[in-house]
């Protein structure tokens, strides 16, 4: 009788000990996992990198048909003063012809002649040609990425090649008619 009681007592005890072991190991595991986070997150952009996130640009000197490149957050930004023909071409494209469907109107923030884009190809991040006069502008008169052959139109939309998306439009606003703030 006493032996049986003893065994039962032991089994109960064993169950409790197992629970304590599993719970303690579990908590230690969770703690160790959480402790790893600072060592991962330190790789994300630091506060000073984030602080460099806005820039103002005077666009009054860009003539019609010309474009400039400025640097924002380490990336090139294309600012293009489009001609009437280029605008008409961008607006005239049927949505069904596009890979990443966006109207030209969704891609400009002020007058239709100003187009502001992040100048990195959405394929693997090269800078497409087409901003400087004399550059290869690709088959659609916008930009051409020489790395893997993506063609963008006069609205910066992907038309042909391996890139999956249109050139991104950064967050920006017109401060005055000739001054824009990016970021």
């Amino acid at each position: 009788m006493s032996t049986t009681e003893h065994t039962t007592h032991d089994e109960e005890d064993a169950g409790r000990r197992d629970f304590l072991h599993v719970a303690a190991a579990g908590m230690a595991g969770v703690g160790a996992t959480l402790a790893m986070w600072p060592f991962v997150d330190q790789m994300n952009p630091a506060a000073d990198t984030l602080a460099l996130a806005t820039v103002e640009v005077d666009i009054s000197s860009i003539g019609e048909g010309e474009a400039i490149v400025i640097k924002w957050r380490g990336k090139p930004i294309f600012i293009r003063h489009r001609t009437a023909a280029e605008i008409a071409e961008a607006e005239g494209v049927a949505l069904s012809d596009l890979i990443d469907k966006e109207t030209d109107g969704e891609r400009v923030r002020g007058e239709a002649k100003w187009l502001v884009l992040v100048g990195t190809c959405t394929h693997l991040g090269c800078v497409p040609l087409g901003t400087k006069s004399g550059d290869d502008k690709g088959e659609f008169g916008g930009w051409f990425c020489p790395c893997h052959g993506s063609h963008y139109d006069t609205s910066g939309r992907i038309r042909k090649g391996p890139a999956p998306k249109n050139l991104a439009v950064p967050t920006y606003a017109f401060v005055t008619d000739t001054l824009i703030k990016i970021g």
């Binding site: 790789m43 994300n44 990198t49 957050r73």
Partner: peptide, 17 residues
């Protein structure tokens, strides 16, 4: 990609790591 770069493009933090 941002985590790998430590910024918004390949830059000084990327070179350091």
């Amino acid at each position: 990609v941002t985590l790998l770069w430590g910024g918004f493009s390949v830059d000084n933090p990327t070179l350091n790591r």
